[in-house]
Design a protein around this nucleic acid. Sequence first.
DNA 1: AGCGGCATGGTAACCGGTGTCAATCTGCGC
DNA 2: GCGCAGATTGACACCGGTTACCATGCCGCT
Lengths: 335, 335
Amino acid sequence: MKAKDGKPTINDVARIAGVSKKTVSRVINRSTLLNSATREKVEAVIAELGYVPNPQARALALRRNFLIGLIHDNPNAQMVLGVQEGILSAIRDTEFALVVRPVNRRSPDMLDHVRTFLEQQRLFGVMLLPPISENDALAQLCDELGVTYVRMGSVRLDDDAHMVASNDREAVAKAVAYLVRRGHSRIGFVAGPEGFRSAAERELGYRDALETAGVALDPAIMAEGNYTFETGIAAGEKLLAASPRPSAIFASNDEMAAGVLHAARTQGLSVPEDLSIVGFDDTAIAAHIWPPLTTVRWPIQAMAKAAAIKLIDPAEARKHPSHFLSDLIERASVA
Amino acid sequence: MKAKDGKPTINDVARIAGVSKKTVSRVINRSTLLNSATREKVEAVIAELGYVPNPQARALALRRNFLIGLIHDNPNAQMVLGVQEGILSAIRDTEFALVVRPVNRRSPDMLDHVRTFLEQQRLFGVMLLPPISENDALAQLCDELGVTYVRMGSVRLDDDAHMVASNDREAVAKAVAYLVRRGHSRIGFVAGPEGFRSAAERELGYRDALETAGVALDPAIMAEGNYTFETGIAAGEKLLAASPRPSAIFASNDEMAAGVLHAARTQGLSVPEDLSIVGFDDTAIAAHIWPPLTTVRWPIQAMAKAAAIKLIDPAEARKHPSHFLSDLIERASVA
DNA sequence: AGCGGCATGGTAACCGGTGTCAATCTGCGC
DNA sequence: GCGCAGATTGACACCGGTTACCATGCCGCT
């Protein structure tokens, strides 16, 4: 008989099945040293009662819980959601759950907030999303508090156990090489904000590609933005004012590419006839603007899934890659 | 002296402060029946040790935890993130944390998944986002499992304790009336998918506005999409093929509005000169396409915050509204 | 027969908090 | 000096699991 008010507990199961708590616990935890008749009997009672172990009690006894945290400060909704989906696909059918915690990178007490969060919730582990994943102090804090972490990023900046990385430098180099193959030689570049590792990597990829193509760098057709639409417009205006005008522009993310597109349109230029544009990230915006944007797709979900597996099952994780390659998605913004 | 391996516990605090566990517990819980000298002494020890109560133990003893869940099946990343931010702003500085769980509306065992999730995690409460918040069976399931819930939606479909609603009908009527004031009388409409309450409400708003303006409904300039960019294109093509062609189109969300814009552009029409377009939701896409989209802004964050407060502190919630009005955001897609 | 070893299952303590209820202390009226 | 109410604090059981360790039954072996 179950407790009158709540859910059945392990005691109820044990009593009805005529065994001890411990035996039920063994059944739940799939211990092998158990006679199969007993196991079946207990399983039948569990099914009949609809017994579900109380995760709080388990967490208390095991001194660890089954919550994994996602700490991020990412302006890109599409990407954050993609990561959430990826994590969820990794923890589906497990007892893990996903706790999210947006933080403010610019806040002076960001680290304190994270500390409070980690101390309070006692998470199993956390995932760190760029750009905040590039913050070494944060990783160190996790270490100090004994919370395992995995960082996602555009470059390998930690050991394999703590990092899932794409290779932005190579991806951008490929995208720019693609522009070169399409006949462009005057290719502008919109960089991401200083302090973002991804921004630096993407710029390196741009430089690599130009060097390979034997094209000299021209600061007049390089600008910096902070990954937002508005700064993309400003960067586009600067680049389009250069003489000679670039025939193609690579922007370090899609939002800024959309800004460049906006700037071009304002000046009466048509895309891709007068100007080719390539973005990065393949967010929803890339497909939904006109013309649809040729861009580089980060395999976000796959990376997030790999990262989550790394967190909850390091052994299994060794079968998955820690490095991912991005693909160029060809749409209509390049001539 | 704290345990050698882990964090200090209530026992450590009690021993060092020379009081009983229970007294420490009283300090933590701000019980009033406590001598202030004792309180200060205990607080000093807590601060010195950096003691943080173990939430799992608390959850076990209190038979409730401090996790609130967000169950959603929403294709709009911007909106989901907005909701997460809103919830977070409500639970900041509390011990609550936010657990997210995307589900698949179309999956036949969606309800089973949710049931498993709720039974396993034993959440304090859950928030239901549209479109899945419109599913009454889901609300009923929460009731049955004793999980309090709050639904967010475009219309009041539950009592005030369980609902935070906007008034889409009125908002759309206002937007369409605005088009009428701007001189449009042939106004097309792109509906959302059948089965979405929001879609039905928005259509009612459209009908209201036309009726008020004394304009007859013309099925030739009404189409249906499923809230995606692609179906927006199809709907746009249909509407623009009508004769006479509409001079303005209201689309039930921004993505479809972007699709209509795309369709117009493909046919060589310029926006807003040849065609005015109004969307709904004010997602990032609305501001980032060209021309920027005039649209209706759902006060997502405020609604989510109100909903979260309703969940964690019903008394406080009575001071907040349960109904929200949407604003028309005027940009450049209307002439 | 006596013994060790293995498979199986039970008992009790413990994880770190909270609720209940009783014990102690205080001040106050008489 | 006594009784009593109210304030303060503590002892102890309990939440629902897990682990450490012990008890039992059964087997084969010497």
